[in-house]
């Protein structure tokens, strides 16, 4: 069948997305569909925090980016009909956070560590980056520094030039509040994060 309709072009999320897409985080009176909190206190799995900043080509932390994450639950299952193992109703696996409310312009996600989905991929989280000044969103992935063996076998990570793989590895830190994985996103420069044509 012919593809008769051209894709609607992407446009930037702009500087004023917050009251539409992350309203509660920014204090606007609209219920938000997703936030930085993906898992409740009693969610099954290892509770982790993911935090990082988004840096521009001048090394400045960007204050008007929006990060979305999409992940499997602790058993590696996705809450979506295309995952034949069935969904976990208690864990939707989607988070959204703007970098404009934290004093240091961090994004912060409280979630559970995803399990491996059983198809040879290491545990990972899909990350989408939006911001003023970007007309098209960018896809990247977050892997975990304490999964070295699984990371070495991961087909997607293996497809990335070896000297750039580190840009996709979140670094585990144990803090007083629990486990934090640090994942900074560099839009440009020597440490430019790998972005995918997915």
């Amino acid at each position: 069948m012919a593809e008769n309709f051209g894709q609607t072009p992407s446009q930037t999320v702009g500087p004023y997305f917050a009251y539409g897409l992350t309203p509660e985080q920014y204090g606007y009176p609209l219920k938000e569909i997703a936030s930085g909190r993906l898992a409740s206190e009693d969610a099954e799995g290892q509770r982790i925090r993911i935090e990082g900043k988004v840096y521009d080509g001048a090394g400045a932390a960007i204050s008007d980016a929006m990060i979305e994450i999409w992940q499997a639950d602790a058993k590696g299952r996705y809450a979506h009909p295309a995952d034949p193992r069935g969904s976990n109703a208690d864990f939707r696996g989607f988070g959204r956070f703007g970098t404009g409310t934290d004093p240091d312009n961090r994004f912060i996600f409280d979630t559970v560590k995803p399990g491996a989905s059983g198809d040879g991929q290491a545990p990972h989280i899909n990350v989408t980056v939006f911001m003023r000044g970007m007309l098209v969103h960018a896809f990247t992935r977050l892997y975990f520094s304490d999964e070295a063996a699984a990371n070495a076998e991961d087909p997607v990570l293996s497809s990335v030039p070896a000297d750039r793989r580190d840009t996709l590895i979140a670094q585990r830190q144990e803090g007083p509040g629990g486990v934090v994985y640090r994942f900074d996103i560099h839009m440009q420069g020597d440490a430019e994060t790998v972005f995918f044509d997915a």
Binding site: D56, G133, A198
Partner: peptide, 27 residues
């Protein structure tokens, strides 16, 4: 669009063949 030169990725995108992680998505 003057905000783009410091914010857009400059290196070629790495091709990614869809896995379960991409064939699923938030509902």
């Amino acid at each position: 669009y003057k905000s783009t030169p410091l914010r857009g990725p400059t290196r070629p995108l790495v091709p990614l063949k869809a896995t379960l992680s991409e064939l699923t998505g938030p509902v």
